[in-house]
């Protein structure tokens, strides 16, 4: 049959769930609603695959098979299973995560203090910010040739690209956080005799922490996007490499599998960053976070 039936049933079911969910408790809604949307997405994916098929005639038996041009959700899942079995999934995921961890970690270690300093010292801000704002709009992808020239087709190239992609949002986030500290906090602290390092430790740093964590979350999201571009060109492993490599082998199920994996890991990374926002010391800055 040309069209699979299940996408239509699933969409109908999801619609029923959506309209019926008002009867559910909040906790149940939080589980059921995203699942319904996910199911609709997969249904559309399947339906889209069914739209475009080509005929393949078996020369021996003369039977004609209808095949999809684009990998279906099922084929993608099967390919993901194969990648899991032969170990490429784990190996390449670890490779990507490792590069992001080092590049992002370095950007945090250098960018946060730099941004805090720029936020606190007007002269530091005046001196450094124009250059930072000039470098920031240069796409990380533009740095790929430079990275390969400097570091070769090695881990270091990808790490450098992640670093370049994330340091500017981190610096900007940190100084913006310091700039938006309500003056009443600084005045109170000065009133109690806090100066310099104490003022920094007890007020400037804790007051900017929620916004800093917010910008780190953003930066990690950027890092996770840039790593794919970096690995497509600058190295020979990682999830980005899987995508180019699979495309060259015309294995689009593998391309989709890697994309699914990127999405799932992206969710997990963001979930981890969101846990940071629940700490007592910063929770006050996120009154709207669920």
């Amino acid at each position: 049959m040309r069209y699979e039936l299940w996408p239509f049933i699933t969409v109908a079911l999801a619609a029923t769930v959506f309209f019926g969910s008002r009867l559910l408790k909040e906790r149940a809604q939080q589980i059921v609603l995203p699942l319904a949307t996910f199911a609709v997405f997969v249904s559309f994916w399947q339906f889209g695959c069914d739209l475009k098929k080509y005929e393949l005639r078996d020369p021996a038996t003369g039977t004609v098979k209808l095949l999809e041009v684009f990998p279906t959700p099922g084929q993608t899942a099967l390919e993901l299973g194969r990648m899991l079995q032969d170990g490429t999934l784990l190996r390449y995921t670890v490779a990507s995560l490792y590069r992001v961890a080092i590049g992002f970690g370095l950007a945090v270690l250098i960018g946060t203090p730099l941004g805090l300093w720029m936020g606190w010292s007007t002269r530091a801000f005046r001196a450094v910010n124009p250059l930072a704002q000039g470098l920031r709009p240069i796409s990380p992808i533009a740095w790929i040739p430079v990275a390969i020239l400097w570091f070769g087709v090695e881990d270091a190239s990808a790490i450098f690209l992640i670093f370049i992609a994330t340091i500017f949002p981190i610096v900007t986030g940190a100084y913006t956080a310091v700039h938006s500290i309500p003056s009443v906090y600084v005045r109170s602290a000065r009133n109690f005799g806090l100066e310099r390092t104490e003022l920094f430790r007890y007020v400037v740093f804790p007051a900017s922490l929620p916004q800093i964590i917010g910008s780190l979350r953003l930066a990690l999201g950027i890092a996770w996007m840039v790593i794919v571009a970096a690995e497509m060109i600058a190295v020979q492993s990682g999830l980005g490499y899987v995508i180019t490599d699979a495309r060259n082998g015309n294995n689009y199920a593998r391309v989709c599998g890697a994309m699914v994996c990127l999405g799932v890991l992206g969710i997990l990374l963001d979930l981890g960053m969101r846990q940071l926002q629940k700490l007592d010391e910063v929770r006050w800055g996120f009154s709207n976070v669920a």
Binding site: P182, V203, L209, E281
Partner: peptide, 25 residues
């Protein structure tokens, strides 16, 4: 001067510190 202390309308109490740590300032 810490011998003369201000209490502001908008408090200036630090939201990142517990009641105890605020008073300890």
């Amino acid at each position: 001067d810490s011998r003369r202390v201000f209490v502001f309308q908008e408090y200036g109490v630090f939201p990142w510190a517990s009641v105890w740590d605020n008073v300890a300032l």
